[in-house]
Amino acid sequence: MALTSQDIARVAHLARLELAPQETQHTLDQINGFFRLVEQMAAVDTEGIEPLAHPAAVTGQVALRLRDDVASEPNQREASQVSAPAVERGLFLVPKVIE
């Protein structure tokens, strides 16, 4: 099942990426080339197989570790905003958010 240019446009938007019209076809061909490879997966019988999301699960360490409820992080605004594109009065500035 091959992707269409509409699929590519929708995915690009979901990912907040722009595709110049001339790129679209090229990208489409490359991604479809890749999905021909992916279609092989359909042939594998995975009936009753649990998905493996965490390789650690195989080693038996499956449970999420929980930490104590301690607020030990200091104010680190200055160091954390050194690389910020736009900051005013400690706030990150972005184009107006319309709700």
Partner: peptide, 8 residues
């Protein structure tokens, strides 16, 4: 913020 929003 004119035309902008501040993120906290």
């Amino acid at each position: 913020f004119i035309g902008q929003s501040g993120i906290d």
